[in-house]
Amino acid sequence: MASVQYAHPAKAPRQGWKRYAAFWARNEELSLLLILAIVVGFFLYAEPSSRQRKVYWDLLWEVSPTLIAAVGIAMLMLAAQFDLSIGSMLAFTGVATVTAMNKTDSMWLGILVGLATGLLIGCLNGFLVTYVRMQSLMTTLGMMFALRGLVYTYTNKTPVIDENQFTQFTRLWFGKVGPVRTPVILAFILIAIAWFVLTQTEYGRNIYAIGGNEQAARVSGIPVRRILFSLFVISSCCAAISGLLIAAQTDTGYFDAGVQGFELTVIAAVVLGGVSMSGGQGNILSAALAVLILGMIGKGMRLMGIHTTQQLLVIGVVMLAAVYFHRVRRRWAVRLRNEGY
């Protein structure tokens, strides 16, 4: 063959609006950015107190633990696996950290122990799922109950307070670099790393391949087990970092941290961000945008003084709408491609 045969469907007369529609439908990040703009725009219009810069810096600050956890979950879900234990991880890490700080009178040892909990639980999850071949949803659900139970038993449902009152430790949450809070910087660094790994490296490509077709990946010589194992560790470690941040907020290891469906919020955001529940499709930036959207809705309503019970209702409805919108977008993407746009 002399040249590449690219089979182009016959060109239909292209209508302008469809070309734009196809552009938007194809680009997940753009559609989500649009939604974020709409949400922000709405609150700017409806709530005068939202018209100040501080609100948005605070938003980033508040959602940073969620963002960080979402990085791990998104990577895991791209490989078609789940981790439901991250909510309990927040409490486990926090309690373990502060307890260790009290026992050793060393902040750094405490933080080290906190990070080690991530490594430990991640390895345990990874081992059970990839080597014992237990199903990830149920395994991590079991881990979720077990960890929470462990924390309750150990703390007797009383918060573990930092006896040394390490102010250094609270700076993990309250610290600033210029106008930006430390957790925000941390979150963005992690997102950037995840983006780089997922799009630019062999490891990242392998994650997509495993999520898209695990058998095919295996037959192509990809070390499937090792990669899945590592993803559970990453997910747990991200959750541990979130747990540290939350503990630093109050300088306390709180037994009920993340108890109100933290893991589900993160999973919901990641899925809203276009990461397929069956793996292999999606990207980290969209997932992060979706976290911001959900965070903004919550924050906006708090500014407007809407009661928490009603907030829950609104968030639920918005989520349903978002899933619907997502579905429509996908359908348009396919349809417009078939039409040759």
């Binding site: 997509y208 391949a209 898209g212 077709n213 058998q215 095919a216 037959v219 499709q281």
Partner: peptide, 9 residues
């Protein structure tokens, strides 16, 4: 389709 192609790729 089962163990060759990664369809969404």
């Amino acid at each position: 389709k089962d163990d060759g192609l990664v369809l969404p790729m």
